[in-house]
Amino acid sequence: MLVLLPPSETKAEGGSGPSLDRITLSFPELDPVREKLCSALVDLAGDVAASLTALGISERQSGEVERNAALRSSPTMPALSRYTGVLYDALDVTGMTKAELGRASGRLAVASALFGLVRADDHVPAYRLSASSAIPGVGPLGALWRPVLEPVLAGLDGLVIDMRSGPYAGLAKIPGAVTVRVVSQEANGRRLAVTHFNKAYKGKLARALSTASREPATVKAVISIAAKADLHVEQTGPAALELVI
């Protein structure tokens, strides 16, 4: 099983790993696009104003441009530690036992606008690039990633639980992946998509699935593991789950 997580706009600072070595990253088939994007971001960082526009950020976030400028030389850390925010707080990597972290490292991957797809223990630097960014000379990221990323995703073995957010799901499709929708249920039975707590609950579900002593291989097993973690998950289609809160 592989649980595919969205990245986060925010990243942890620093790191104790060596500078970026793309050769060591999982899914080496993606390297040509990774190299193109890394080069484009480093070059773009030479023009702060243009970088702010392309990345969709304000002058108060100019430190993000500095991160991109140092993309090739800054220290790295495992992806699970680099990405931060609500989902990753709920995932709570620092609270995992050694055994749980070992299982999670094999079952989690992160979708990335810069790297396409990375395993949980791949070492990455801090950077700023989102799926909606418009980098001069590169074009839409979906058009760039789709031809190389979709074959990689189609080749994933076993059950794939797709928790990517919309913009990242738009970078490439995954045939047969099981999607997760977080919903609330009204008194009349009507279900509404949850926005505010969406990431937190996906993080909780990802934690339960990735650290379970027995790796789930079926949707039924996913629902069972979720129930043990006090999460109410229902199958609503052949490849669709709803997490009801």
Rank of each mutant, 00 (worst) to 15 (best):
K199E: 04
H196E: 08
A221I: 09
A208Y: 00
T218S: 15
P216Q: 13
S224P: 03
L205I: 15
A193H: 07
L209F: 09
H196N: 06
E215S: 11
T211V: 14
S224E: 14
A221S: 13
P216S: 14
A200E: 08
R207T: 08
Y201F: 15
I223N: 05
P216C: 10
R214H: 09
K228C: 11
V194H: 00
I225E: 12
T195E: 07
V194Y: 01
F197D: 14
A212F: 01
V194G: 01
A221E: 15
I225H: 06
Y201K: 03
A200V: 01
A206H: 01
T211M: 06
N198D: 12
A221G: 07
A226F: 09
K204L: 14
H196P: 00
K202P: 10
L205G: 14
I225P: 07
A226C: 08
K204M: 10
K199R: 09
L209P: 08
V222A: 13
S213L: 09
K228E: 14
R214T: 14
S213I: 09
A227M: 10
E215C: 13
L205V: 15
H196M: 11
N198Y: 03
I225S: 08
A217E: 15
G203H: 02
N198F: 06
K199D: 04
K204Y: 09
P216A: 12
A226L: 12
T211W: 04
K202F: 10
I225V: 14
A221R: 11
K220T: 14
N198K: 11
K220F: 07
E215F: 04
E215H: 09
A200G: 01
V222K: 01
V219K: 08
A221M: 10
A208W: 00
S210R: 03
K202A: 07
S213N: 10
A193L: 12
N198M: 05
A206P: 00
F197S: 11
I223C: 10
V222N: 05
K220V: 12
F197G: 02
G203K: 01
V219C: 05
A229E: 04
T218A: 09
A212S: 14
A221K: 12
V222Y: 02
K220Y: 11
V194F: 02
A226Q: 06
A221P: 10
K220R: 14
K204T: 05
I223V: 15
T195H: 09
L209K: 13
T211Q: 02
L205C: 14
S210M: 07
S213W: 02
H196W: 07
K202L: 12
L205K: 11
V222L: 15
A221N: 05
T195M: 03
K220N: 10
A193C: 00
A229I: 01
A226Y: 04
I223Y: 02
A221L: 10
T218N: 08
A217W: 09
A212P: 04
I225W: 07
Y201I: 07
R214Q: 13
S213T: 15
N198H: 07
T195A: 03
K228V: 05
T218R: 11
A193M: 03
T195V: 08
R207H: 07
K220Q: 13
L205Q: 13
S213H: 12
A206Q: 00
K202Q: 11
